[in-house]
Design a protein around this nucleic acid. Structure first.
Lengths: 200, 200, 200, 200
DNA sequence: ACGCACGGGACACCCCGTTCCT
DNA sequence: AGGAACGGGGTGTCCCGTGCGT
C-alpha cells in the first residue's frame, strides 16, 4: 500500500462523487482539482488517460459501492420472496443512505451516454444493468423452480420491471429531494410481487 | 413578420432534439448551429438569453409534444381502469414512436440538473412531473370515488409507482436500444394495477 | 433640391465627422445611425455601397471643407511671401476653428490606411496631398520666377516641409488638446520661409 | 523558466508590428494569432488583460525601439547644433531603416486615439511625445546657455516645430511610400536651425 | 424614403483538457 | 506532484448588409 495508491484511491472516490453529481460533460477537470485538492499534474500522473479514463474507473468504483449493498441483500436468509423484498428494500435505501451521492451511477450514465461519446461508459452501464437484472431474474427463476414462487410471470419481465421501478423511483426521489417516492415504489413493488408471484 | 416566428419554431424543434439527446452540458451552441442550419447570430437574435434560455424554452416545447400524447390517452373512453391502461400504453409507445428522440425530457432534465445549475430546468422538470403524477392520481381517486376501483392503495402511491416504472423502463429501453423493457414494464404494470385496484 | 438630397447631405456631413474622429475601422454603422438619426435602411438607400462607399464620399466631403479655406488663402492679395504666410495661417487656424473635427482628414486617412484595405481611401488621401503640395510648390515657383522669392530652396522641398510641419502640428495639437503647437509651428515656419526665401 | 518570457517577448514584438501597421481598431486578435503563431489561449495566458493590455505593452515596446535610436543621436559628439542635426537625421532614418514598420507609433496612437477609448494609449503617446520634446528643448536651452546657439527662438517652439516637421514627414513618406519627404524635411529643418539658431 | 426584422459572419474573451518542465 | 504553457473549442456580442413593410 504505497502512498501513490492512497492518492489514487482518494482521486477515484472524489471523482466518482463529482461525476455522479455533475455528469461527465458537466464535470470539469477543475472540479476534480478542487474536489481532490490536487493539481492536474498529480491527477494525470495517476490517470494518464485523462478525463475519460478517470471517469471510466470512477464509474466502476461507484458501481462497486452499490454492489456491496446488493451482495448483502441477495445473501439474506429466507425464501425467494424474502430475498426479493430485501433487494427492493436495498434500493429503497437509496433515499435514506445513498451509497453514492447524485443518484444511481448506472442510470445517470445510461441517460447521459445514450447517444454519441466513446461508448465506454455506456457499455459499462449496460453490463452492470445486465448483472443486476440477472441477479433478480435468477432469484425469481430459482424460486419458481423450487416452488416458492408461482410460475406466472416470466423472471425476465419481473426483473426488468423491478429495476425500472426502483431506478425510476431513485430519479423521482432526486427530483423531489424527498424519500417518499422510494418508499411508495418499494411498498407497491412488494405488493406487486406478492400479488403476482405468491404461490397459489 | 411570420418569417421570424417560423425560424424561431424551427430553432426550438431542433434545439429540443439536440438537448434531449446530448444533454444541456453536452450540447454546444455549435451543435445547435449544425442542427438548425443557422449561425449564432441568427440563433441569439431569437433567444437573447443564450443557451440557457433556449434550453428552457426547448424543454417546454419537448414537454408539449409528450403532453399531446398523454391528453389523447387520458381522454380515452371507458372506465378508470381502461384509462389507466391507456396511459401505460402511451408511455410504452415511447419505444415504438417516441414523441422526442433521446428519451423522456423530464427524466433527462431531472438526472442532469439534480445538482447545481440555475435551477430553472430542474424547476420545470419538477412541475411537469407533478402534473403527470396528478393526472394519474386524479384518475385513480376518481375511479375509487366512483367505485370503479378498489379503495386499497393510495392514489398518490399508485401514481408515483406507475411513473417511476414507466420512466425507468424508458431509461432501460434507451440503454438497451430495445423496446422490450417498455413492453415488459407495461405488461407488468397493468397486471399490478389489475391485482391491486380491481374492485372486489 | 429634393428631400432625398437633403438627407444625403446630412448623412455625409455627419459621417465625415464620425469617420474623421473615430477612424474608418473604429467607426461602426451604428455610430453613423446615432449621428444621423437614421437607421441602416435609410443610410443604405442613399449609399448602396455600404460603409466603404460612404467613407469615400464622406472623405471627399471633408476635404472639400478644408479646400474652401485654402482657396481663400491662396487667393489672398499680396506677393508670394504674403500668400505663403496666409496659407500657413490657414493651417494654423485648425486649432481655433477646425474645418473638420478630429484633425486633418488627409493625415488621418494616410495614417490609418498606410497598409492593407481596399486602397480607395489611401488613393484619395494621396491625390489630395498632391494637390496641396502643388498649391504651395506652384506658389513658390511663381514667386521665384517673378523674383519675389530667392531661388535657393527647391519649391518641392519647401512645399513638402511646409505641409509636413503643419500636418505634424495638427497632430500635436490634437494630442495635447492645445493650440500652442500650431501657433509655434506657424511662427517658426514663417521664420523659416523668411530666412530662406526672402530675396537678397 | 525562460520559456514563457521568450514567448511573451515574441508576442510583444509581433503585436507591436501588427498594431503599428493596422491600428488598434483595425487589428484583430486573429491577426495577432497569425502573426505570433499562437492561439488565443496562449496569448491570453501572457496578457490576461486582453487586446487592450497587449496593445499598451506593445506600444511601450515599440517606443523603446525608437528610443534606442534617439539615445544614440543625443549622445553624439559635437556642439549643440551638431547634436540637433544628428537628431534630425535620426528621424530621417525612418525612411531608410524604420525602427518600427507602419510609421511612428506615437503619431499613429495620437491620430487613432484622439477621441474616445480608455485613454491609456493616448496617455502613453502624450507622455512619450513630451519626453521627446523635452529632449530637443533641453538641447536647445543648454546650447543657448552655453552660447553655442543664438538666444532668439524659444527652445519650446523649436522643439515643437522640429518634432511636428519630422513626424509630418514620416506620415508623408508612408503615404507616398517614398523616402523623399523625409530627406527634404530633414534638409530644410537643418537649414531652418542654422538660419535661426546659429550664433551671430 | 425610411424603419425594422432578420441573419451571416467575425470577434473578444474565457475556460477546458493536456503536456511539459521542474 | 505543482505549475507554467498552450491548443482548442465554446459562448455571447456586435457589426454589416439585405429585404420587407410602410
Amino acid at each position: 500500500v504505497a502512498r501513490g495508491d492512497v492518492t489514487r484511491e482518494h482521486i477515484l472516490r472524489q471523482a466518482a462523487s463529482v461525476f455522479n453529481r455533475l455528469g461527465y460533460a458537466g464535470a470539469s477537470v477543475s472540479d476534480l482539482e478542487t474536489a481532490t485538492g490536487l493539481r492536474t499534474g498529480g491527477i494525470y500522473r495517476h490517470f494518464p488517460g485523462g478525463k475519460e479514463a478517470l471517469a471510466v474507473e470512477a464509474f466502476r468504483w461507484a458501481v462497486d459501492r452499490v454492489d456491496e449493498r446488493l451482495a448483502a441483500a441477495v445473501g439474506a436468509p429466507g425464501d425467494a420472496m424474502a430475498r426479493l423484498h430485501a433487494l427492493v428494500d436495498t434500493w429503497a435505501d437509496y433515499g435514506a443512505s445513498p451509497p453514492m451521492p447524485g443518484g444511481c451511477p448506472v442510470m445517470n450514465a445510461a441517460i447521459e451516454h445514450d447517444a454519441g461519446g466513446s461508448g465506454a461508459l455506456r457499455r459499462q452501464a449496460l453490463d452492470t444493468m445486465d448483472r443486476w437484472r440477472a441477479l433478480v431474474r435468477d432469484l425469481v427463476a430459482a424460486g419458481q423452480a423450487r416452488g416458492e414462487l408461482s410460475a406466472g410471470p416470466s423472471p425476465d419481465a419481473v426483473a426488468t420491471t423491478l429495476l425500472a421501478t426502483m431506478e425510476g423511483a431513485i430519479m423521482l426521489a432526486g427530483l423531489y429531494r424527498d424519500h417518499a417516492p422510494l418508499t411508495h415504489a418499494a411498498e407497491q413493488t412488494k405488493a406487486y410481487l406478492d400479488a403476482t408471484l405468491s404461490p397459489t
